[in-house]
Each structure stands twice: as structure tokens, then as C-alpha cells.
Amino acid sequence: MHLATLLLFALVALVAIATPGPTVLLALTNGSRYGVRRALAGMLGAMASDFVLVGAVALGLGALLAASEFWFSVVKWVGAAYLAWIGLKLLRSQGGLDLSQAAAGHAGGTPHTLLAKSFLVSVTNPKGYLFCSALLPQFIDASLPQGPQYLALAIVFAALDFAVMLGYALIGARAVRLLSRRAVLWLDRCCGGALLALAGSLAFYRRSTG
């Protein structure tokens, strides 16, 4: 795979990743509630899901979801339900947590919990599989071994995902220090409402039959 191909893929992937979605909203929320250091666990979970997603596309799962209404619906409804559950929890939130208490371990949101939450949100989103199954093959040279090429794309995708989520987490952590508790409460509610809206859009999302 040529360097120019990787750079072009990185540019396209960055535009897609930077668009606000479930994982970046979680990074923003985790940064505001638990601080950047603890939010790193959620980022690692999302990065792990990137490798699962690219690996699944390489093995043909993206094509399966595009062809099978049943399996597409299974993944879609699991993802929508999980997003809605997280969104409702944020809507019922009492506001951002105190970062000093979170750092000392006196608040909820263990690294394992944050990692699992971000991983599950990303890995149960069928849009990601369909998007990558349409995008990734365009950057694969069929005359070369495909495994190393998909691995290179996965590394680039995960690295960009981490950079974008880190930026959102830093914004969230900064906001919780500058805003009043009431403003932070509304930040939680806005993120919760956005996740619910994403859950709704996912529930009504239909695979292309064309």
C-alpha cells in the first residue's frame, strides 16, 4: 500500500470521525465527568472496536449486514437500545462530577466500565460496518496481500479516532472547570438528548437495498 493511499484514506476517515457521533459524545461526557485521564479508558474501548469493525469488514461481515435484513436489524436494535439507555441516564444526571473526587476513585465510572461502554456503543452500530464495507475496499490493492493492508487502515483509523476523542475529552474537562454546576448539568442533558436522537435515527435507519 502506497503512502499516498494511506494519506487519502486518513483524510476521508478524519472527516467521518470528526463528525459528532456516539463515541465522540461519550468522550466529551467522560472528559467532563471524570477527567481526561479516566476518559482514556473509553477511548481505548472505541479504538478496540475500530479493529473489530475493520476486521469484520475484511472477513465480509459488512457485506452480510448489507445483504441480510435479519442480522442488520439485530445489530441495529441492540445498538439503538444501548444508546437510548445511556442517553436516558445522562438526562437523569445531576450534573458533572467533581474531578478531584473522580480522580480519587470516589465517583462512578471505573476504567473497565468506560472501556466497555464505548466499545459496545461503537461495535453495535451497523452504520459503521456499512460505511467501512463501502469505503475500505476502495483503498485495497487486490494484487497485494489484503491482511496487512486492512491492518494498516485499521491502525490509521484507530489513531485518528483516538486523536478526535482526546480533543473532545479535553473540551469536556475544560468546560467542567469553567462552567457553573448548572451549566454542566445542561451539558450532560444536551449530550443525553443527542444520544437519544442518535438512537432514534439508528432505529429508523434502513440498509440500502440498491
Rank of each mutant, 00 (worst) to 15 (best):
Pro111Asn: 04
Tyr150Asn: 07
Val176Phe: 01
Asp50Trp: 00
Ser100Glu: 15
Ala27Gly: 05
Ala84Cys: 13
Leu153Gly: 04
Pro111Ser: 06
Leu6Phe: 03
Val54Ser: 04
Ala203Ile: 02
Gly62Trp: 00
Ala175Lys: 00
Tyr150Pro: 02
Lys117Trp: 00
Leu91Val: 03
Leu130Pro: 11
Ala48Phe: 05
Ala134Ile: 04
Ile17Asn: 14
Asn125Arg: 04
Cys190Pro: 01
Ser201Lys: 14
Gly109Phe: 06
Ala159His: 02
Leu187Ile: 11
Ala81Thr: 15
Ala199Tyr: 09
Leu83Ile: 04
Ser133Ala: 15
Val78Tyr: 01
Ser208Tyr: 09
Ile140Glu: 09
Leu153Pro: 01
Gly193Cys: 06
Ala41Phe: 02
Val15Phe: 14
Leu170Trp: 14
Leu185Ala: 09
Gly62Thr: 01
Gly200Phe: 02
Val156Pro: 07
Glu69His: 13
Pro137Gly: 10
Ile171Ser: 06
Leu120Phe: 12
Ala175Met: 14
Leu151Asp: 03
Val164Gln: 06
Ile86Ala: 09
Leu195Ser: 04
Val156Tyr: 05
Val123Lys: 05
Phe157Asp: 10
Val52Arg: 03
Ala4Glu: 13
Asn125Val: 03
Lys117Gln: 14
Met165Leu: 08
Leu196Phe: 09
Tyr205Pro: 00
Trp85Leu: 13
Trp77Ile: 07
Arg174Lys: 12
Gln94Met: 06
Leu83Arg: 11
Ala183Gly: 05
Ala175Gly: 00
Ala10Trp: 06
Leu28Asp: 02
Val52Glu: 04
Ala175Asp: 03
Leu44Val: 10
Leu185Arg: 13
Ala103Val: 01
Lys76Asp: 03
Gly200Lys: 06
Arg189Ser: 08
Leu65Cys: 07
Ala116Gln: 04
Gly192Ser: 09
Leu160Met: 11
Cys191Pro: 00
Met43Ile: 13
Tyr168Ile: 00
Gly105Lys: 05
Leu28Lys: 00
Ile155Pro: 00
Ala175Arg: 03
Gln101Thr: 02
Arg92Ala: 15
Cys191Thr: 15
Leu99Glu: 09
Asp161Lys: 00
Pro148Ala: 11
Ala197Ser: 13
Arg37Lys: 09
Leu53Tyr: 05
Leu64His: 12
Leu88His: 09
Leu26Met: 15
Val52Tyr: 05
Gly55Gln: 07
Ala173Phe: 03
Leu115Asn: 01
Leu8Thr: 14
Asp141Glu: 12
Asp188Val: 07
Phe70Val: 14
Val74Thr: 13
Trp77Lys: 04
Leu130Gly: 11
Ala10Met: 06
Ala16Ile: 12
Gly200Thr: 00
Phe131Asp: 07
Asp50Asn: 03
Val164Phe: 08
Ala58Gly: 03
Thr23Leu: 04
Ser118Met: 07
Leu136Tyr: 10
Gln138Glu: 11
Ala152Tyr: 07
